[in-house]
Structures are given as structure tokens and as C-alpha cells.
Amino acid sequence: RRRVRAILPYTKVPDTDEISFLKGDMFIVHNELEDGWMWVTNLRTDEQGLIVEDLVEEVG
């Protein structure tokens, strides 16, 4: 499975499927959606939700 790491922190918009995260958080990518969004699991918090790919980098 594809893994990505947050390069910046992010605070979710209330009442959306987004998740908040810290710089350095690792995610497993489940689905890549339109307009650069990804459905992921945050490995630190075990939370699932949407993040935008501009805020993460690939992990080898």
C-alpha cells in the first residue's frame, strides 16, 4: 500500500470528512480521488478521512 508523510500540519474544516494532522504524521492511502484529495488512515491517530495531496510527500 502507498504511504505518504505530512510535510505541513493541517486543521480540518468543521463538518467535513477531512482529518486534522501534524507535520510528520504517516498515512496509508486507500483511495485517490479527484482534485488531489486522498482517503487515508492516519497511522498515529488511527483516524480515517480526507487529506489533500499537496500537504504530503511520498515515502520510499
Rank of each mutant, 00 (worst) to 15 (best):
T45M: 03
F27C: 02
V4F: 07
K23M: 11
F21V: 04
E47G: 04
R1L: 15
I28S: 08
R1K: 15
E34A: 15
N42Y: 01
R2Y: 06
V59Y: 11
R3H: 13
E18F: 06
G36I: 03
R1Y: 15
R3G: 05
Y10A: 04
K12V: 03
D15K: 08
M38N: 03
P9T: 12
E57R: 08
M26G: 04
D54M: 13
L22S: 08
F21H: 02
R2N: 07
V13T: 14
K12E: 06
T16K: 04
L22C: 14
D15P: 04
I51M: 05
R5K: 10
W39V: 07
L8I: 09
P9N: 11
L8D: 09
F27Y: 00
V59H: 07
R2I: 07
Q48L: 07
E32K: 13
N31S: 13
W39K: 05
V13H: 12
T11V: 13
T45Q: 02
V29F: 03
M38I: 10
L22K: 12
I7S: 06
V13R: 13
T41V: 10
M38W: 06
E32H: 11
V29Y: 02
R3M: 14
E34K: 14
H30S: 06
A6R: 00
R3F: 10
I7E: 04
T45H: 02
E34Y: 12
V40S: 03
R44L: 04
T11W: 09
L8K: 10
E32A: 12
S20Y: 02
E57Q: 09
G36F: 04
V52P: 12
L55T: 06
W37A: 07
N42Q: 07
E57H: 06
V56W: 03
E57P: 01
T45P: 02
L50M: 12
G36A: 05
L8S: 11
D46V: 11
M26T: 12
T41R: 07
T41D: 03
G24P: 00
F27E: 01
T41K: 07
E53I: 13
F27T: 00
D46L: 14
L50Y: 09
V13E: 13
L43K: 04
D54F: 14
R2A: 07
V59Q: 07
L22P: 02
